[in-house]
């Protein structure tokens, strides 16, 4: 019934921990009419539900700007931190963000992951590939993207990158307009505190 269902036998327990609880161990007797019927082990119930998503104000603005190859963040009025992608709220203040900020399409790799298994919804991504948190110039937090045009093994924390956009004729209101992030060749950002992510104070782009 179970895979690898072996239990070590050097110290026999007082009671077999895998034995069915007493209340569930009474045999089930089937009526004669069902004798020989094949037990049903599972039923398949397909569920299809259609939802119309609402990205909300902040993400709508962000996606529209993407069509013009612009990246919008939003600033927290209380702390000045800039969030991207924006969600319309600052977790630092528990308040709506106060200002829309246009960010550069350059930044640095905060940390990264080299995926060596294919993922179901992106058959176009051939492993190994590198996904990374990119901290844009002017942003306070990292933002997920692919690092491209470099061997994954050569990607470094602190490496400077710039966005690689889709050709103009293929642009849509989608985060997918950024195909990935490629090295700029500038000197690496100096990371001093590996525990902490992003920037406490936003810098000017």
């Amino acid at each position: 019934m179970f895979e690898e269902d072996r239990v070590s036998a050097d110290r026999p327990a007082a009671r077999d921990p895998l034995a069915a609880p007493a209340a569930l161990s009474a045999p089930v007797t089937l009526p004669e009419a069902l004798a020989g019927a094949e037990p049903v082990e599972s039923v398949c119930t397909p569920i299809r539900m259609t939802y119309t998503y609402t990205p909300g104000r902040a993400l709508s603005r962000y996606l529209r700007a993407m069509a013009d190859k612009r990246i919008l963040g939003e600033r927290c009025g209380a702390t000045g931190q800039v969030f991207v992608p924006p969600r319309g709220v600052s977790p630092l203040a528990g308040a709506a963000t106060s200002e829309v900020v246009e960010l550069a399409d350059t930044g640095y790799v905060e940390s990264f992951n080299i995926t060596r298994v294919p993922i179901e919804r992106r058959p176009d991504l051939k492993p190994p590939y590198c996904s990374a948190w990119i901290v844009l110039d002017g942003a306070s937090v990292g933002f997920l993207g692919l690092v491209i045009n470099i061997a994954p093994e050569e990607v470094r924390i602190g490496m400077r990158v710039r966005a690689v956009w889709k050709p103009d004729e293929e642009l849509e209101t989608s985060a997918g307009n950024i195909l990935g992030w490629e090295p700029t060749g500038e000197p690496d950002e100096v990371i001093t505190d590996y525990e902490r992510i992003g920037r406490v104070e936003a810098s000017d782009p």
Partner: peptide, 29 residues
Amino acid sequence: LSLPQPFATSVNAGAGGYFSPIIRRYMMM
């Protein structure tokens, strides 16, 4: 875990893809 959402790109396979950059920071630190 990956119900399609038109406004996000999916580049990570599961939780491992999320946590591995954090582990990398720990190793560097």
